[in-house]
Design a binder for these strands. Structure first.
Lengths: 347, 347
DNA sequence: TTGTAAGCGTTATCAC
DNA sequence: GTGATAACGCTTACAA
């Protein structure tokens, strides 16, 4: 690298600031950390010196001497790219707002328990951070949660489903969101429904299925709702869709629990020569990127993932917060082009 | 957090290791850092003590005292989720392999130059790292590259397209990959082509277009190839597709420069009542996740993004490497279901 | 080949 | 309110 033109100016230290402002090291430290018992005049002097010297505290020295690292970790596992990127963006923005840095850590929770614990130990021992944001499915991993608690490491979960006494979390009401989908389809005139179930471990998936079916029953549906597994993947959505379309009692509306499997269902319709939404309506869940990468655009439920992520960071950084609280944010039904009245509306 | 059951054991320090093994601090340091001039017996003693104490060096102390931070930064901007997640996974794996940590940083390169520089300064001043991995479009941002060079910060680019004297990079041969697509379609019997162009800033896009058309000419195509802009987005792909399908000289094969716009083209076909690949063939580029989230699955070019990312980290960490080298990896044509012979094969 | 001593730039303790 | 002074855990001259 060519350093001759702009020699890197050696960064100013706290001592430089102290000298320039004529106060002690400790006073500078007090100002920087916003500690109480600092006179306004001293504060002003120090801040002037900081500005003049363009001083920025050194992160390494800070974490060596103190208890904070100014690093937040985001723990990821086997992520859906869309979901993960949204989470990551929200977490990143919030973290930077607080002058923190974002560290990424992947773990694989599908390995045996002892290998899993070894991964965790390696992560935690090597370099500390001030807290972890946990994403699904890790936020429901009891092994992980207990490990973090026992290690005294703060953490906040995004979309946990455990009835938990293990840390705080940020959620939406999955059941009510699914009920909103049910009402939307009902109001369009649909009376023949199918629902795609998610993977067994995905507890939020079960809540969506329950909320959907219970709301339909409440509305007065007498026919049973057809249920079928999709694994929440595009491929699973295709095969589930093919089964449904081939069945004798073909539904007029399909609720697919997540956007990926909904896109699969739409592909199956296309293969079968059916037009969405004219012949059949399809709903997703998440409002992920794929919802606008299919044709027609998918009717789905928007989860405020970025906002949930920002809130998770805020909770993490707000010390003195109750440790086991669940924060619930609002979802929103997004009606696009994949839903319409059924082909032969009932009276 | 409940700490009563498992009180966090205070971590062993280098001094503990030195005491237990009966050597000096410096010797322990030598062993840890793999420095030369260490006798085998001393090394063995120290390593035994390290194992017994379960010692792990403290990252903060190391970076305060030394010149390394054991952090690699991944600089992201406006990312395609699929592409970014693949890069991130590759970079993460490589980084952890070297006992480093991965820090994420987003920057927005669409803002005015002075605001952009302010972002960079904030990132770099606040906490150092041992190097950055740059992703498109940042890897072609001269402002950024010059800033990093002048700050003496190492960096390696993934898929840069600049004719550069600004750092190393890892690439594939975009032109040759596009030529491979051209040959695939030609061999199927196609003679009426269209190509979707990417955004102007996306210099790799231009290379793909050039490689595609030049190869067709080399093969003996006399008809001109229809060209149209797509912006490389799904929506752009839809409108480009609609124009192409409505034109009097409808192509039998469309090369869409990236998978997203290819998916858009397929959606346009579906809207128009055309079947892929029976009526028309479509090709993408990237082999991103969306290539298997459309029906039929997309014929495309696989880029070894994870491997490119891993290599980028390796280059970054391998000091003494030539500073301005381009490393070229192999791509691979992935033939799936979106390409077939044209409906009326020519003799 | 091995060891000694002096920092690195903060925060924390405890006087004043 | 403010300020000495001692950690924090490691690396890096410089000796031996």
């Amino acid at each position: 690298m060519n350093l001759t033109t702009h020699p890197a100016p050696s960064r100013a230290t706290m001592e430089d600031v102290a000298r320039l402002s004529g106060v002690s090291l400790k006073s500078v430290s007090r100002v920087i950390n916003g500690e109480p018992h600092v006179s306004a005049s001293l504060k002003a002097k120090v801040e002037a010196a900081i500005a003049e010297l363009n001083y920025v505290p050194d992160a390494a020295a800070r974490s060596l001497a103190g208890s904070r690292t100014f690093i937040i970790g985001l723990l990821l596992d086997n992520p859906s790219p869309h979901y993960t990127m949204k989470v990551q963006k929200g977490v990143y923005d919030a973290v930077r707002e607080h002058q923190y840095h974002l560290r990424i850590d992947n773990v694989d929770s599908t390995v045996p328990a002892d290998a899993f614990m070894a991964q965790l130990n390696a992560l935690v021992r090597n370099s500390r951070c001030d807290g972890f944001v946990l994403t699904p499915p890790l936020c429901d991993n009891v092994l992980l949660l207990e490990f973090l608690d026992q290690s005294g490491i703060r953490h906040v979960s995004i979309a946990p489903t455990l009835d938990r006494s293990l840390g705080s979390g940020v959620v939406i009401d999955d059941a009510e969101a699914a009920a909103t989908i049910a009402r939307h389809l009902w109001d369009l005139g649909h009376r023949e429904f199918a629902v795609l179930r998610g993977p067994a471990e995905h507890r939020a998936a079960a809540r969506r299925r329950d909320g959907f079916i219970e709301e339909l029953e409440r509305l007065g549906l007498s026919e049973p709702v057809t249920e079928i597994d999709s694994g929440f993947s595009f491929e699973g959505g295709i095969s589930a869709g093919e089964s449904l379309l081939a069945s004798s009692r073909r539904p007029t509306a399909i609720f697919a629990g997540n956007d990926d499997s909904a896109a699969g269902v739409m592909a199956a319709c296309s293969k079968a020569g059916l037009r969405v939404p004219d012949d059949i309506s399809v709903c997703g869940f998440d409002d992920s990127w794929i919802a606008r990468s299919v044709w027609p655009y998918l009717t789905t439920v928007y989860q405020p993932i970025e906002e949930m992520s920002r809130l998770a960071v805020a909770i993490l950084l707000r010390r003195g917060e109750p440790e086991n609280r669940l924060y619930r944010l609002d979802f929103r039904l997004v009606v696009r082009d994949s839903t319409a009245p059924p082909p032969q509306p009932r009276s």
